[in-house]
């Protein structure tokens, strides 16, 4: 070994590089699996789009036009060749470039996820800390009951209740979140308020409970007692002494929930008529529109990989001992 390699000087950077490399490989495996899985589904795009009006000749013509009569392997090579050149191909259903289809919807999805996360994460962590602080008291119980009730309701029901109360009854917010072709920022915030609040109600309990459990766990340690004995306030003990050591599980749960906010909100999108990626992917799977499904799947997989990585980096930054697992 000639000198200390970069990795030893910057163990965190080396970990990030290694994880990104594995991530790229994971994306490749996922693309193969999705391609095969969709090919295994009964029917193809020709039958799905033509539906009841399909006849053997029109289905055959449809397939010829799209090159679906080529062997599976060649179609995959063709697709991955395009992706390596940055070309995601065209939607089989309407011939539009996949990149253009995704662009607007990806932005919408990210906006809604960010909106919900910016409300939900601080809310959940604060509630979790306060619950840990006042464990067993009235505040703790009420918070638990409310957040757990919210997570127990199916999200479409929460959406309908909010829509009925705040949109139909009160008329405070629009019942449809579709922002139109070129909305302003304020308009977007107003339009997407109800879906964002729905999502907040769904994800808060999970993060709140994890924060509470992790902090309560750490609070039992002798060094916390020590901190109390040297005269630190309860709030300071929780935030300065307990929280950093409890951060790893909390950050991981937060990352998982944000990933869900990006990838799993199709029902909320449908109920509020919000054009996000989830609906696009569900429609495309129904239609066996492989290029669009592949592109969506790659984005979703990348979101999970990156957020998990980010969670680990944050956890390590807060608690460097985690770099050296025993």
């Amino acid at each position: 070994m000639s000198g200390a390699p970069a990795g030893q000087r910057h163990p965190l950077l080396r970990m990030i590089a290694a994880r990104l490399g594995i991530g790229v490989f994971t994306l490749f495996v996922i693309s193969t699996l999705i391609f095969l899985a969709i090919s295994l589904l009964p029917g193809d795009i020709a039958q799905q789009v033509l539906g009841q009006s399909a006849t053997p000749e029109t289905v055959a013509a449809f397939r010829r036009e799209l090159g679906l009569d080529q062997p599976l392997f060649w179609r995959y090579l063709d697709w991955i060749g395009g992706v390596l050149h940055g070309d995601f191909g065209q939607s089989l259903a309407n011939g539009r470039p996949v990149a253009a289809l995704l662009a607007a919807r990806l932005g919408n999805t990210m906006f809604l996820a960010a909106y919900a996360a910016l409300i939900a994460v601080p809310l959940a962590v604060t509630l979790g800390l306060l619950s840990a602080l006042w464990r067993g008291r009235m505040f703790d119980r009420i918070t638990n009951v409310l957040t757990l009730s919210a997570i127990s309701l199916p999200e479409f029901l929460i959406a309908y209740i909010l829509m009925f109360l705040l949109a139909v009854r009160m008329g405070w917010f629009p019942s449809i979140a579709d922002p139109g072709a070129s909305p302003g920022f304020g308009e977007m915030l107003n339009r997407t308020f109800l879906p964002a609040i729905t999502l907040v109600l769904v994800v808060t309990a999970h993060m709140m409970r994890m924060t509470r459990a992790a902090v309560v766990n750490v609070m039992g340690n002798p060094y916390v007692t020590m901190a109390r004995l040297k005269g630190a306030s309860r709030w300071r003990v929780v935030t300065r002494h307990a929280l950093p050591n409890a951060l790893a599980p909390i950050v991981n749960v937060v990352a998982l929930n944000i990933a869900w906010l990006i990838t799993g909100v199709v029902i909320v999108e449908v109920v509020f008529v919000y054009p996000g990626l989830g609906q696009l992917m569900v429609d495309s799977v129904t239609n066996r529109d492989i290029p669009v499904v592949q592109a969506c799947a790659l984005i979703f997989a990348a979101v999970y990989i990156l957020l998990n990585l980010l969670a680990d980096v944050v956890a390590i930054a807060a608690n460097p001992r985690l770099l050296h697992p025993r």
Binding site: S91, A93, N94, V292
Partner: peptide, 12 residues
């Protein structure tokens, strides 16, 4: 649907 196309052959 997101698969809607301007092509009259696919109208349903």
């Amino acid at each position: 649907a997101t698969s809607d196309s301007l092509d009259p052959a696919t109208f349903a």
